[in-house]
Computed example of a mutant assay.
Amino acid sequence: MPIAAIRTHRFSAPLHTPFVTSLRRATSVDSLLVEVIDSDGRSGFGEAPQVWAVTGANMAGSQAAVEEMIGPRLIGRDPDDLNANCAIVAKAVVGNEAAKAAVDVALHDLAARRLGIPLPRLLGAPAITAATSSAAANSAADGDGAGAGPGRGVVVATDVTLAAGAAEALGAAAKERVAEGFRVLKVKVGTDAEGDLARIRAVCDAVGGAAKVRLDANQGWTPREAIRIINGISEEGLPVEFVEQPVAAKDLDGLAHVSQRVDIPIMADESVFGLRDLVEVIRRRAADLVNVKLAKCGGLGVARTLLVLAESHGLGTCVGSMMEGPVGLGAAASLVAAYPTSVVSDLDAAWWLSESPLQGGLRYINGTVVLPDTPGLGIDL
C-alpha cells in the first residue's frame, strides 16, 4: 500500500475580525493544503500557511516545492516508513520550511490514520480511556499542559490574541475574551512605542487578574524602546507574564541586551526558525523562552528536537502557529499534547476563522483546543 499520489489544494477562509500586528494586517487565512494519499485511498493532510511578512512563504512557492521537488521523491514509498520519509522531505529542498512542514504533517496524519489512532497518540500522548476524568480537561484550562475528557479527545489550553489597536478597544476586547472562557491573553503591541504602555495598562485593568497577560511586539521596538517600556511595566506593577520578540529577528545582540536588563522574561519567536537559531540564542543567553512553530522549523520532528533542546538548557517553551487553519493548528496542538510546554501555548489562529471549507477536526471550548478522538487529525476536505 505505497504512497500513490500527493495533491495540493489552495485554502482561503475569512476571519471574523482583522488580525493586526506590528508586521501586518490580515483579514483571511491563506494556506496550501497538502494531501498525501496511499494506494487504498486513505489521505493525510498538512498545511503551509502563506505569511509574507514573517516566513516569506506563499502558496505559489509552497505548491512548487511540493509538486516539483518534495512530492515526486515520496511516490511509491511505504507510508509507514515515517522517519525515512520525513528525512527525505527535510533534504528535498533548501528552505521552504512551510512546505516541508505541510508534507511532514500530512505523512504523520496518514500514518496515524493507517494505525487507526489520533495524531497525538502517534506522537506519544497518553491513550484516552473511558475512565479518563474530566478533571484532566479542567487542569488543561487552568494550567499549562494538556488533558483529556471522556468522548471528547485531547484538550489543550491556548491563549487568545488581542489584535493591535487603541487602548480602549483592547480593554473591551480583553473583557470579551475573558467572558468567553479564555484565561491567557496575548496582546499585540509594537505598532506605536509611545502609546504601548497605556495599551498594556488598559488590558491589565480590564481583566483585573481574571486572566494572564502576555505581550508580543513582533519585532516592533528598538532595544532602547523595549527596555524603557518593559521596565515601565515593572515599575507600575502590571502583571505581565512575558514579552515576545521585542526587537528585530536578526538582532540577537539587541535581544540579549534587552533580556539582561529587564526583570520580565523575554521570549524569542521570529529569531528562532531552526536548530542553529536556537543554539545561538542559548549561546548568547538572548532569551528566557522560545516559541516553536511548525511552519518556521519544517515539521514535527524538528519541532520536538527544539522543545527538548530548549528545556534541557533551561529555556521555557511554547508551541505557536502562524495565521493558519485547523490542519496546521491540529498538528501544533497534537504536538503539545505529546510534549507539554512550560507555558500555555499559542494555538488560537483557527479560532479567528468565520467559516471553513474543511470537515471535522478541532474545536474551541472555554479557552481550550479540543482535538477529536478519531484517527489522525480527523479532518476531511
Rank of each mutant, 00 (worst) to 15 (best):
T305E: 15
H108P: 09
L377C: 07
L238A: 08
A211C: 05
L82R: 10
K296I: 12
A136C: 04
H108V: 07
I230D: 03
T27A: 11
A337T: 06
V290L: 02
L371W: 04
E168C: 01
E225N: 04
D205C: 01
M322I: 00
R261A: 15
V290F: 07
K188T: 10
A169C: 00
R183N: 12
E280V: 04
V156S: 09
V262Y: 03
K293Y: 07
R276N: 14
A102C: 06
P49V: 09
L122Y: 06
N218W: 04
R152N: 00
V66R: 08
V93L: 15
G361Y: 08
P372C: 07
V155E: 10
N218Q: 10
C318D: 04
G171A: 10
A87H: 10
V281M: 03
R283C: 03
P239N: 13
F11C: 01
E235Q: 15
W351C: 04
H9W: 12
I200L: 11
E280H: 12
G376P: 06
P14K: 10
G320K: 02
H313M: 12
L185R: 10
T17P: 00
K293Q: 02
D373N: 15
L347E: 02
D30I: 12
Q219T: 14
L170V: 12
A350F: 07
S356A: 04
D30F: 01
G56I: 06
A173F: 01
A4S: 15
D346L: 13
R114D: 07
A92V: 11
Y339A: 13
V29T: 14
E235P: 01
A249H: 11
D142M: 11
A135D: 15
P223D: 12
D251I: 13
A172L: 14
V51K: 01
R363T: 14
S234T: 15
L162T: 03
A256Y: 11
E355M: 00
S39T: 14
T161D: 05
A157R: 13
G46V: 03
A26I: 10
A106H: 04
V343M: 10
N218A: 14
A65P: 07
V94P: 00
D104S: 06
A92S: 15
K293R: 15
D30M: 01
T191F: 00
G151C: 13
H257Y: 14
K250W: 13
V240T: 11
D216R: 01
Q359E: 12
A332K: 03
H16P: 00
S271W: 05
P79D: 08
L335K: 09
